[in-house]
Design a protein around this nucleic acid. Structure first.
Lengths: 238, 238
DNA sequence: GGCAACAATATTGTTGACACATTTGACGCC
DNA sequence: GGCGTCAAATGTGTCAACAATATTGTTGCC
């Protein structure tokens, strides 16, 4: 038996007690997870890039084990892949997988469109109807894609919230964070945004008159149309 | 500064090297996860039951940290809930959540029915058509529910495999493991299995003739019908 | 007995140290 | 220079000790 001598600190300081070290205060696992999710979804960390535990451990000021926990969460969401003893790399999407994600997205968004229509009073969609009949078209004319995407996100977010189905919401969230950059690239494809805008108006009109069945059908058509655009320009998107 | 002396072993034995201790060999995280999933899905561990890290650590012969990792995975799947410093308890399902799970299941199974029909030659469904036209009805007449459920699982499994969409497959899997016991209780509701059998035949007929659109429509009707049965007998199921 | 305060026990949460694997780089040889 | 071999460096995987918190048990008082 060997005997080793370890020096240990007399008092263990509380988590937030010493913020001075490294000039970076410690972060919670949730914050770290969220940060890395955003970086990967926004391709700030590009597909195929390697994530080093020590680097992140140093950056966030947390022990390496916590980074590993976050990696597990990212892996279960399909954002990274872990190879034993080799580390973690950002998942690289291929066209085939994107189509499969879109197939699932189609039925889930369709479901949410219907549930949302059934759950809230039709008048509550009026502001979005207005926004989509005027401003959104202007954004396209002036090439203000950021504002257009913002309006797109708003509609989507409102629909999911109104649907009130946390299961579907979570699943869609995991799809968005994986296809986020694809969505944005589809929008700037020639003519796509104009077509999509028309389709969104149709969906909103159905929701506005309380026709959930039709809203679901139109939403699915919209998703298929987006998928076709993606397929037509596959070489330019991925 | 205090100095503490720790005794450490000279050589660390490999994982499988010493199987004699406690008469229980060490298990991989995957095995443990699978075991606990099955226990919770089968209500071997009932809803609301508390899971103690040390107990499981001892049972599987692994360090407690590994049990905690498994807990994280179970939590992300919604099978358990963790309360800080209070431990983990098996999630208790309420009717509202079951309905929401069924809404998602409806669209996902519908999608898989369509994709499966599109992906494989129509003839490949013949054995299931045969099985559902003869033996399955016999199982119901003789009250052999186990065989009936087995035939039900087989159809479902084949459909998902043929659909070839791992995203949808994984989502459905997480729904099944949460509603597994509900599915089995619905089947034994008066008249439900007979109605369901008829609907499954219709779905299979559509798949057999290669009509994916119709297969999706019928599958969704089937799921709605099951949901209605569940609603009618809600007091007996949950 | 009822109950509040405290002590003891049990359980969960956190972390650094060590073990193991892979990659990198230096060296010698042909 | 090309290339196999070995050593050092780097990075990942595992775990048990320590800390913090919650739960249970005990005591003393009214």
């Amino acid at each position: 038996m060997s005997v080793k001598i370890l020096k240990l600190r007399d008092k263990s300081p509380k988590r937030g007690g010493d913020t001075s070290r490294r000039g970076k205060l410690t972060a919670t696992p949730e914050e770290i997870l969220e940060t890395l999710r955003r970086r990967i979804a926004g391709q700030e960390i590009p597909p195929g890039a390697k994530l080093r535990e020590q680097d992140l451990s140093a950056e966030f000021g947390v022990p390496r084990t916590r980074i590993r926990d976050v990696f597990s969460a990212l892996e279960s969401r399909g954002l990274i892949e872990r190879i034993p003893n080799r580390g973690a790399v950002v998942t690289r999407l291929d066209m085939e997988l994107v189509f499969k994600l879109y197939d699932v997205r189609e039925v889930l968004e369709g479901l949410c469109a219907r549930l949302a229509t059934e759950n809230v009073p039709p008048e509550s969609w009026q502001d979005l109807v207005d926004h989509y009949s005027g401003p959104m078209a202007d954004y396209l004319k002036t090439g203000d894609f950021d504002s257009y995407v913002e309006g797109y996100d708003r509609l989507r977010q409102r629909t999911i919230t109104a649907a009130g189905n946390p299961i579907a919401a979570q699943m869609l969230d995991s799809i968005y964070e994986r296809t986020n950059f694809v969505i944005r690239r589809i929008i700037i494809l020639p003519g796509r945004a104009e077509t999509g805008l028309e389709q969104h108006r149709a969906v909103l009109a159905a929701m506005r008159r309380g026709d959930g069945i039709e809203a679901e059908r139109l939403k699915r058509l919209n998703m298929r149309s987006a998928k076709e655009s993606l397929n037509r320009f596959r070489n330019y998107v991925l």
